[in-house]
Design a protein around this nucleic acid. Structure first.
Length: 401
DNA sequence: AGTTATGATTGGAT
DNA sequence: ATCCAATCATAACT
C-alpha cells in the first residue's frame, strides 16, 4: 500500500501489475532481471553484497517486484514463485517490515468494532416465521394457533377440520423445505468461511494478517451471506402467506351457512321486510345466533336485499313461509289463532306482529300487495331501479369473458 | 355436463 | 363507514 500512492498519477502504465513498471523508484529495479545486474556470485540472490548497500536495495526491490507481479502469472508459476519467496532469506525481514508498516497505518485496528445492526427486515421475517410455526422449535402448537387465530377472524365453519389438516400438512411441507434450505445455506456459509479462513491463514505466512482481521472477514462473509438467508426467509414467508390466503380465503372454499343460520337470518329479514337493515347490535346478535361473523351477516343482508328486490316474485313463497312462521310464533299466545291459509287472498291474520306486512303471493300478478306492505313504512327498494326488475333477461348478454 | 343458489368481493355513490 | 350493484367463485342441484 505504501507503494501505491506514488503510482496514482502515473497514467500510461498498462494497468496490470499495478503499473509497477512505471514507478520511478522501481525503474532501476525493473531491469534487474537482466543477467548482468544481479547475481554477483553464482545463483543465490542473497544479501551477499552487504558491503554494497546499493545492491541490497536492488535485491529487495527485486523481491517486491516479484511479489507484485505474482498475480500476472499462471497458477503454477505463482505457486512456485511463492514457495521460492517463502524460502527467501529476506522473507522474515520483509515480513517484519510489513508488520511494522501495518501497525503504523493502524489498518488492522480500524473498524474492529462494527456492531452488526441486525437487519430489521430479517428480524421481522424471523418473527413472522416463528409466529407461523415455520421457524419455531416444534410444530403443532404454533401452526394450530396461527390457523385458529386466522379462522376466528374470518368465520369458522364447523367442519373445517379437514381444511385444517390439509393446511397443516402443507405448512409442514413448507417447513421442511425451509429447514433443509436453511441447513444447506448454513453449510455453504460455514464451508466458505472455513475456506476463506484457511486462505487467510495461509496468507498470514507471507503477509501480516491478525486474527482480528480474520474475525472481521468472517463477519463480512456472514453479512454477505445473510442476504441469501433473507431471501430464503422472505420466500418462505410468501409461501406461507399464499397458503394462508388459499385456505383462509372463504371465497375459495365457500360453505353455505347452516340451515338453522339461514333460518334465523331469513326470519329476521322477512319480519323486518319494511326495513331490513339490522343495526350493529342486531347484527351482532344474529351473528352470535348463527355462528357467523358480523360482516357475514352484513353480506347476507346485502345479498338478500338486492336479490329480493331484483326478483320479488321468486321470493314470495319464501316470504310467505317465514311470515307464517312468525305469525305462528306471534299467535301462539293468542286464544284464537287463525288458520294460516296460503291460498286465501288477503290473509293478514298476522298484522298484529310488529313489522309484518305480508300479503299473499299473487302468483302471476307481480308484487303489488307486497310493495304495499313493504313500502308502507320503509320504501327501501323504492329507489329508481331499472324498471323491469322482474325480467332480468332484458339485458343482452355481453359477456366478454 | 349445465344451471341455479349463494357467500364473498369489488367499485362507486352517499 | 355503509350500502348498492355487478361480479366472482364455488356449492348444490338437475
Amino acid at each position: 500500500m505504501l507503494q501505491q500512492q506514488p503510482l496514482a498519477g502515473n497514467g500510461p502504465s498498462n494497468g496490470r501489475g499495478l503499473g509497477m513498471s512505471g514507478h520511478p523508484g522501481m525503474h532501476a529495479l525493473n531491469s534487474a532481471h537482466q543477467p548482468s545486474q544481479h547475481r554477483s556470485d553464482g545463483g543465490e540472490p542473497g544479501l551477499e553484497g552487504t558491503e554494497n548497500g546499493h545492491e541490497t536495495r536492488r535485491d529487495i526491490g527485486d523481491i517486491l517486484q516479484q511479489i507484485m507481479t505474482i498475480t500476472d502469472q499462471s497458477l503454477d508459476e505463482a505457486q512456485a514463485k511463492k514457495h521460492a519467496l517463502n524460502c527467501h532469506r529476506m522473507k522474515p525481514a520483509l515480513f517484519s517490515v510489513l508488520c511494522e508498516i501495518k501497525e503504523k497505518t493502524g489498518l488492522s485496528m480500524r473498524n474492529t468494532q462494527e456492531e452488526e445492526p441486525q437487519d430489521p427486515q430479517l428480524v421481522r421475517l424471523d418473527n413472522m416465521l416463528l409466529a407461523e410455526g415455520v421457524a419455531g422449535p416444534e410444530k403443532g402448537g404454533g401452526a394450530a394457533a396461527a390457523v385458529s387465530a386466522a379462522t376466528s377472524s374470518g368465520g369458522m365453519s364447523p367442519d373445517s377440520s379437514l381444511e385444517h389438516s390439509d393446511y397443516k400438512s402443507k405448512l409442514s411441507q413448507i417447513r421442511s423445505i425451509y429447514h433443509t434450505e436453511l441447513e444447506k445455506y448454513e453449510q455453504a456459509c460455514s464451508e466458505f468461511t472455513t475456506h476463506v479462513m484457511n486462505l487467510l491463514r495461509e496468507q498470514s505466512r507471507t503477509r501480516p494478517v491478525s486474527p482480528r482481521e480474520i474475525e472481521r472477514m468472517v463477519a463480512i462473509i456472514h453479512r454477505k451471506f445473510s442476504s441469501i438467508q433473507t431471501q430464503l426467509k422472505q420466500s418462505t414467508c410468501e409461501a406461507v402467506m399464499i397458503l394462508r390466503s388459499r385456505f383462509l380465503d372463504a371465497r375459495r372454499k365457500r360453505r353455505n351457512f347452516s340451515k338453522q343460520a339461514t333460518e334465523v337470518l331469513n326470519e329476521y329479514f322477512y319480519s323486518h321486510l319494511s326495513n331490513p337493515y339490522p343495526s350493529e347490535e342486531a347484527k351482532e346478535e344474529l351473528a352470535k345466533q348463527c355462528g357467523i361473523t358480523v360482516s357475514q351477516v352484513s353480506n347476507w343482508f346485502g345479498n338478500k336485499r338486492i336479490r329480493y328486490k331484483k326478483n320479488i316474485g321468486k321470493f314470495q313463497e319464501e316470504a310467505n313461509l317465514y311470515a307464517m312462521k312468525t305469525a305462528l310464533g306471534a299467535t301462539q299466545n293468542e286464544d284464537s289463532p287463525h288458520t294460516p291459509n296460503s291460498t286465501g287472498s288477503g290473509s293478514f291474520s298476522l298484522s298484529g306482529s310488529a313489522d309484518l306486512f305480508l300479503g299473499v303471493p299473487p302468483m302471476n300478478g307481480e308484487q303489488a300487495a307486497y310493495q304495499m306492505g313493504a313500502q308502507a313504512n320503509g320504501n327501501w327498494h323504492g329507489r329508481n331501479t331499472p324498471p323491469s326488475a322482474t325480467s332480468p333477461r332484458s339485458d343482452h348478454s355481453e359477456n366478454s369473458d
